[in-house]
Simulated assay, not measured.
Amino acid sequence: MRFSPRDNAFFDLFEADARNLRDGVRLLSEALASDADRADLAVQLKEVEHQGDEHTHDIIRRVNSTFVTPFDREDIYRLSSALDDVLDDVDAALDLMVLYRVGELPSGVGDLVDVLARAAELTAEAMPRLRTPSELTDYWIEVNRLENQADQDYRRLLARIFSGEYDALTVHKLKDVVDTLESAVDGFETVANIVEQIAIKES
């Protein structure tokens, strides 16, 4: 491993970024409650998303100004970008719920958001251990399992949305929301895959 004292800042930034992402997913989860004020939660989530952008910019600035990095610069860029992409999808999903005024969501949406919440927790727990990525095998295996579970949840949701229970306009709205949630789950798998690739390179 190629460490120097200043390298610790990268790990601290990734840890903060993952905690911020977890906060964003928690707000999304709160938005599923029947009495939730989604508009207010969307405003809060937008602030979390802006904080995520700041973390991304901080990481990129540090990469560009640091001679020795803890692992490949390309992987630092990729990991930072992947975390940012997930938070963008989480933010977009809630934004669509508000803009479309979707009202009550199919129960299966909660299953997808539960997967997101679990993946967010695992990612927040994993980032502090990024200093020894080879010890994170359980993390990327579990995130990949969650993504497979989410694929099944997504297909069941689509089947319900297109079952004839909803009018055509509602179908379009719900599908946009569900597609964005599924993209966020895929994004968590991308993050886990990048961590696995870092582990392989550093082993």
Rank of each mutant, 00 (worst) to 15 (best):
L83M: 11
L21G: 04
G108W: 15
A16H: 07
D72H: 11
E49V: 00
E47C: 03
A9N: 12
D35V: 04
D37H: 05
V48M: 12
Y77M: 02
L28K: 05
S29P: 05
D72R: 01
Q51A: 01
D23F: 06
E47Q: 06
S81E: 10
R78M: 03
S81A: 10
F71W: 00
D88T: 13
R118A: 02
E54T: 04
D35M: 11
R6E: 09
I59D: 10
G110E: 06
P5A: 10
E47I: 13
T123S: 03
V102F: 14
A31T: 03
L79V: 07
D114Q: 13
D111F: 13
V48A: 10
L83F: 09
M97R: 04
F67S: 04
T123M: 10
H55L: 14
E47L: 11
P5C: 11
N8I: 15
T123E: 02
G108C: 08
T123A: 07
D40H: 10
A82D: 06
P70W: 01
L99G: 06
P128M: 05
V48R: 13
D40E: 09
A39E: 05
A31C: 04
L32V: 09
D40A: 15
L45A: 08
D85M: 07
A82I: 07
T66E: 10
Y77V: 00
T56Q: 12
E125Y: 12
D58H: 09
D114I: 02
E49D: 15
L28I: 01
F71N: 07
G110R: 14
M97L: 09
I59V: 14
L41A: 08
V115K: 08
V113F: 11
Y100V: 08
V115H: 13
A9H: 14
S80V: 04
L116G: 02
S81N: 04
I76C: 14
I59F: 14
D84F: 08
S107E: 15
A92M: 12
L105N: 14
D89M: 12
L32I: 00
R101I: 03
Y100P: 15
L94N: 04
E54M: 05
G52T: 04
E104C: 01
R22Y: 09
R73D: 00
S107Q: 11
A82V: 05
F14M: 04
V109R: 04
V98M: 04
E121G: 12
R73M: 13
N20V: 07
T56A: 02
S80E: 14
V109L: 09
L45P: 03
A39G: 00
V63C: 10
V68P: 11
N20W: 08
L87A: 12
S34T: 01
R73H: 11
F14D: 09
L28M: 00
L96C: 02
A33D: 08
S81W: 09
A93W: 06
D12S: 04
V98H: 11
L94G: 03
V48P: 07
R61H: 15
L116M: 13
F14V: 11
E121K: 13
A18Q: 01
V43W: 07
H55G: 08
A92L: 03
R101W: 02
V90C: 00
L13Q: 03
D91P: 02
S4R: 14
